[in-house]
Design a protein around this nucleic acid. Structure first.
Length: 674
RNA sequence: GGCCCCGUCGUCUAGAGGCCUAGGACGCCGCCCUCUCAAGGCGGUAACGCCGGUUCGAAUCCGGUCGGGGCUACCA
């Protein structure tokens, strides 16, 4: 045992003793049964979702018992502290509502950052040293490595104990020499553990646990050449949780094996033992087996994943609570959030984090929200993670609200098409002209291989007779489909596929694709109403007729697939197209970005204006290319390049709407798989 | 290697010796509804890791084994 003078010479003379801290952090005087819990993350990067899980349990237990919840930052390993971690923590705490109780954010039993508590730890280390319950260890890192190697070779337990603990009982003389030589030292705990002795404790979740006692003289204060002088986790845990008057330590099961050490530390320090609850870690399916969800390998392990995708916090919380207590998973969300979590009901096997299930919960949750609430949340999310979206939503809140109201407001089973805010752009983006890319190719695969000719016919027919406010809106499509020879129902088509080009399903798919860019969408009448007649006609009329001239551009075009020989009507259509080609005004394409007119450069597609007679362009002649060739023979004003005819069906003047000239940016991406 | 924790459908789980032919939820599959997709309705698929023991009787108790995870740091 070292002399008191020698021990004291190692510490600042004005360092207070343990009584000082005991007075400074007095017992709380909380009523019987009130639990004080703490969440203690280490600021080594983004918070782990398991941290949110633990913190949520901590907070819930504290509050439901009338106790207190605090957050203590465990940054005793300064080398691993990440810049910006504090900000990320703050964001995560705010998002998931797991910040410390108000009076435990500052002051009170703080500071709540371990690197700021050096004095406290030093007091207790000195005390242990004075009592001979700890000692100085001058082993270098290299020596430690060699020791471990020898232990391994000898088949002995690694660690600092027994014959391997060379500094445990070193005479004061030698210690003084080392000190005089300026050698750095660590402080080790003199473990009272005996070989063969077993200890047991009662875990609040697992019941009684028994294991070998600790015999390792664990380091409690890191090397003297580090600044600030900080303790290891074990020592900080004992000192902090005692002084902060924590009653229940909830932590990951990886700490179970350290409990014997912790119990020894509490006893040596003269602290009453503390209760523990070791929770199973969140796991991840990896191939055939499962492993702990790892922040390094699994993006979904990080809270940033949930925040950046805009998972609604209450849904995530609900999911996590259900994992903690199965009972809560079968309750409606508001009730489950209010019910207390019970440690005794927690599973001991690590649950697999199931993103599919989370999605399902999120969809259910979002379905309970009003369009207005969703818009507010999406907008708030977008401001940070999708500025383009935020801008568009700010510019057209009414459109957004109309879109969100579809099959959501005033229905018994709201549409469950949104799981997280990042889904919004995929699911509702097409409503916004800025995000919608017009479908111009009648041979577009989204039409499902339907004859391009027919696609054009459907579009033209629809646009030509469009009645936006028709009571039987869908009847318009039904009539047009019948007129063009589509089967009245999928069933009828299946019975005799040869008799029809397709069914009403295919016909409406044409309008659906034109309107939404996808083969699936909410009900067409509702979509059309939200869009407004001008936008509907703009989209339906976007289909182009492409013609290649000889020697040019042989990519497959709609024209290539035209059916059998010309009839009267088809020839009339052709003439109309050609008439359009001579329209001097339209021969000068508009510069889309500036809205200016300028002469068409050689090879520029020539637009064909809408003409009343071209309603049924879908019925154009098959050898169209040939006819065009003939008609253009000898003309010098038309360049032998692909000609693009755009048969906009008769539009009411001004019906093109305000967005007609806006370039589309980006199409409608595929929906995320469920 | 040593010590510790854990093991029921794909997933989360209910299950305290007979109420278990193992229940629910999510997923998945099928059907219905239907202009598509969701949603919804109906139905289906699917598990006690394995081997012994105790017992009239075992998912449940015991032993072993196998598998998964953790600790074995001057990381937390």
């Amino acid at each position: 045992m070292l002399s008191r003078d020698l021990v004291d010479s190692l510490f600042p003379p004005d360092l207070p003793g343990p009584q000082h801290w005991e007075r400074r952090y007095p017992p709380r005087g909380l009523p019987e049964g009130a639990e004080v819990t703490r969440f203690s993350p280490s600021p080594t990067g983004f918070l782990h979702i398991g941290g949110v899980y633990t913190a949520m349990i901590d907070k819930d237990i504290a509050h439901h018992s009338g106790g207190r919840y605090l957050v203590r930052v465990e940054d005793t390993d300064q080398a691993r502290v990440t810049a910006g971690a504090a900000e990320q923590f703050a964001e995560a705490f705010g998002y998931f509502g797991i910040g410390p109780d108000k009076d435990h954010a500052t002051g009170g039993y703080g500071p709540y950052t371990q690197s700021a508590r050096e004095q406290v730890y030093l007091s207790y280390v000195r005390e242990l040293l004075r009592q001979g319950k700890a000692y100085l260890d001058f082993e270098t890192q290299q020596e430690a490595g060699e020791r471990t190697a020898r232990q391994r070779a000898a088949g002995a337990l690694p660690g600092y104990y027994g014959q391997w603990a060379v500094w445990r009982d070193a005479p004061q003389q030698r210690v003084a020499e080392q000190l005089a030589a300026g050698r750095p030292y660590a402080v080790r705990f003199r473990s009272p553990g005996l070989a063969g002795r077993r200890v047991s404790f009662t875990d609040a979740i697992r019941g009684e646990l028994t294991m070998e006692d600790n015999r390792n003289d664990a380091v409690i204060l890191k090397r003297s050449d580090t600044r600030p002088r900080l303790p290891t986790y074990h020592f900080a845990h004992a000192v902090d949780d005692h002084l902060m008057r924590v009653t229940l330590v909830i932590r990951g099961e990886e700490w179970i094996s350290s409990v014997p050490l912790h119990l020894q530390l509490f006893a040596a320090l003269g602290f009453p033992p503390i209760r523990y609850a070791h929770i199973a870690p969140l796991m991840k399916q990896a191939g055939g087996s499962r492993r702990k969800l790892s922040k390094r390998h699994d993006p979904e392990a990080s809270v940033s994943f949930y925040i950046a995708h805009g998972y609604p916090a209450p849904a995530v919380e609900y999911y996590l609570r259900g994992l903690a207590n199965g009972r809560l998973a079968e309750m409606p969300l508001p009730q489950a959030l209010a019910e207390p979590i019970r440690l005794s009901e927690m599973g001991t096997a690590g649950p697999l984090a199931d993103l599919v299930k989370l999605d399902d919960i999120c969809a259910d949750y979002v379905a309970t929200l009003s369009g207005r609430t969703i818009l507010a949340d999406v907008t708030a999310w977008a401001r940070r993670y999708d500025p383009d979206l935020a801008r568009v939503l700010d510019a057209e809140p009414d459109l957004a609200l109309r879109a969100l109201a579809i099959e959501r407001e005033g229905v018994a089973n709201p549409r469950k098409d949104l799981r997280k805010w990042a889904d919004f752009r995929n699911v509702y983006g097409y409503f916004f002209p800025e995000f919608f890319q017009l479908v111009t190719d009648p041979a577009d695969p989204r039409f499902g291989g339907l004859d391009p000719d027919l696609v054009r016919a459907v579009a033209a027919e629809f646009a030509g007779n469009y009645q936006p406010t028709a009571e039987d809106w869908f009847g318009q499509i039904r009539r047009l489909a019948a007129e063009l020879g589509f089967a009245p129902s999928g069933k009828a088509y299946k019975q005799d596929p040869a008799a029809y080009p397709g069914s009403i399903v295919e016909a409406s798919a044409v309008i659906r694709v034109l309107l939404t860019g996808a083969r699936d969408s909410p009900g067409l009448p509702a979509v059309a109403a939200a869009l407004g007649p001008g936008e509907v006609l703009r989209r339906v009329g976007a289909l182009r007729l492409r013609v290649s001239l000889p020697g040019e551009d042989h990519r497959p075009h709609a024209v290539d697939g035209l059916g059998p020989g010309p009839g009267q009507q088809r020839l009339r259509g052709l003439r109309a197209v050609l008439a359009g080609l001579r329209n001097p005004c339209r021969d000068e394409p508009r510069d889309q970005r500036r809205g200016e007119r300028r002469p068409a450069p050689p090879g520029h597609p020539i637009e064909v204006p809408p003409r009343a007679g071209v309603r049924r362009l879908g019925a154009l002649v098959p050898p169209l290319r040939e006819r065009v060739d003939q008609s253009l023979a000898g003309r010098e004003d038309v360049h032998p390049r692909p000609v693009v005819a755009e048969p906009c069906p008769a539009l009411p003047v001004g019906a093109e709407g305000a967005h007609a000239d806006r370039p589309g940016i980006g199409g409608r991406p595929e929906r995320a798989p469920r």
